[in-house]
C-alpha cells in the first residue's frame, strides 16, 4: 500500500477488519469458489455458508428465480454440517489472510449453542454470525428472528458458549426491525448484520404454478437495496453496536450509501454473481471516494447522513 492516506480499518464488534468490505453468507461458499477472481487478503472478511449441527440436503429444485433487478432463492440451508465443516473446510479457511465469519443456524436454541461451542473449540474464525432470519426453511432461523424474546434467547445461548464476537443477522420480514435489534443487543450481540432476504415468490403463467419448488423464496439483489438501506438507517440509530449492512450492494456507491446510513461495514452477496470482482472494486471505490472528499478515516462516513 503505497502512500495510503486513507485509513480503511473498521472495528465490527471486536473484529478488526482491514477494510469495511466483506461477503455475505450463502453467496461465497467456503471461500475457495471465488479464489480465481478475488484474493481474500484484499477484503475485510468473508462469511461462509450457513452451518447447522446436522448435514442438510437443502430444498428441492428449482431453487432460483430471476426477478427484475433481483433474484429469489430457496436453497434451504444446504450445508455439510458442523463436523464436516471443521474437518474439511476450516483448515483451508484458517490459511486465508482475512477475517472469517462462521454463519450458523439451527432448529433449536440447543443447536445454536452446540454449533457455537464446536466453533469456539475448533478455533480459527474471527466471529460468529447468527442466522435467525433464513426465510427458506421451517427450522433454521426465521422462527427465532421474528420474535424478540426468541431472538434474545438464541443470542444469549450463543453468547454463553463463546468468547468470539457475536453478530446477529436480522430478518427484514418483521414489522419493526429495531425491536428485534434491541432485543439481541440487550442479550449480548456485539454487532448486527442486516438485511437477510425479503420473503417473496414468482409464478410461471404457463404452468400456473409457483416457480420455486419451495413456493416462497428470499429476494436479494439491487431490487431490495432501498429497503435494506432504510433498515440500516433505523437500526444503526436504535442500537449502540456496529451494523454490518447488506442488501443489493453492487458498487462502491451502494456501499458508501450504506455507510452513510450507519453501517460500519458492508457485505456483498448477490453482487458477487453479477460481478465476481465487485468486492475488490468496492474497496477501491470507497478509498477513492474518501480521498476525493478529504476523508482520512473511513469511520467518518459511518452515519454521516444522519439528520
Amino acid at each position: 500500500m503505497k502512500g495510503r492516506e486513507v485509513s480503511l480499518n473498521v472495528n465490527l464488534g471486536g473484529i478488526e477488519l482491514r477494510n469495511p468490505v466483506t461477503t455475505c453468507s450463502g453467496t461465497y461458499g467456503f471461500g475457495e469458489e471465488y479464489a480465481p477472481y478475488v484474493d481474500p487478503a484484499s477484503l475485510g472478511g468473508i462469511a461462509v455458508k450457513g452451518l447447522t449441527r446436522e448435514v442438510r440436503p437443502g430444498n428441492p429444485m428449482p431453487r432460483l428465480a430471476e426477478t427484475p433487478s433481483g433474484m429469489l432463492n430457496s436453497i434451504g440451508l444446504q450445508n455439510p454440517g458442523i463436523d464436516e465443516f471443521i474437518a474439511r473446510y476450516l483448515p483451508e479457511l484458517r490459511q486465508l489472510d482475512t477475517k472469517v465469519l462462521a454463519n450458523i443456524a439451527g432448529n433449536s436454541v440447543e443447536d445454536y449453542a452446540y454449533v457455537t461451542s464446536r466453533l469456539e473449540e475448533a478455533g480459527g474464525i474471527a466471529g460468529i454470525e447468527v442466522n435467525i432470519s433464513c426465510p427458506n426453511v421451517k427450522h433454521g432461523g426465521i422462527q427465532f428472528g421474528t420474535d424478540p424474546k426468541m431472538a434474545a434467547q438464541v443470542t444469549r445461548a450463543v453468547r454463553k458458549n463463546t468468547k468470539l464476537p457475536v453478530i446477529v443477522k436480522l430478518s427484514p420480514n418483521v414489522t419493526d426491525i429495531t425491536e428485534i435489534a434491541r432485543a439481541v443487543v440487550d442479550a449480548g450481540a456485539d454487532a448486527v448484520s442486516l438485511i437477510n432476504t425479503l420473503l417473496g415468490m414468482a409464478i410461471d403463467i404457463r404452468s400456473r404454478r409457483p416457480v420455486l419448488a419451495n413456493v416462497l423464496g428470499g429476494l436479494s439483489g439491487p431490487a431490495v437495496k432501498p429497503v435494506a438501506l432504510r433498515m440500516v438507517w433505523q437500526v444503526s440509530q436504535a442500537v449502540k453496536v456496529p451494523v454490518l449492512g447488506m442488501g443489493g450492494i453492487l458498487t462502491a456507491t451502494d456501499a458508501i450509501e450504506f455507510m452513510l446510513a450507519g453501517a460500519t461495514a458492508v457485505a456483498v452477496g448477490t453482487g458477487n454473481f453479477v460481478n465476481p470482482r465487485a468486492p475488490l472494486e468496492i474497496v477501491a471505490g470507497i478509498e477513492e471516494y474518501c480521498r476525493a472528499n478529504g476523508v482520512r478515516d473511513v469511520n467518518e462516513l459511518v452515519g454521516a447522513a444522519w439528520i
Binding site: 437443502g58 429444485m61 428449482p62 430471476e66 444446504q78
Partner: peptide, 26 residues
C-alpha cells in the same frame, strides 16, 4: 440448469447425484 453464481458457491443449480458408495447426494 438455471444458475446464479456459476462457480459452485450459491447451491442454486443442484442435481441429484450418487456418491461413489451409492449414497444419494446433491
Amino acid at each position: 440448469e438455471h444458475m446464479a453464481c456459476g462457480v459452485g458457491a450459491c447451491l442454486g443449480c443442484i442435481c441429484k447425484g450418487l456418491a461413489v458408495n451409492g449414497e444419494s447426494v446433491h
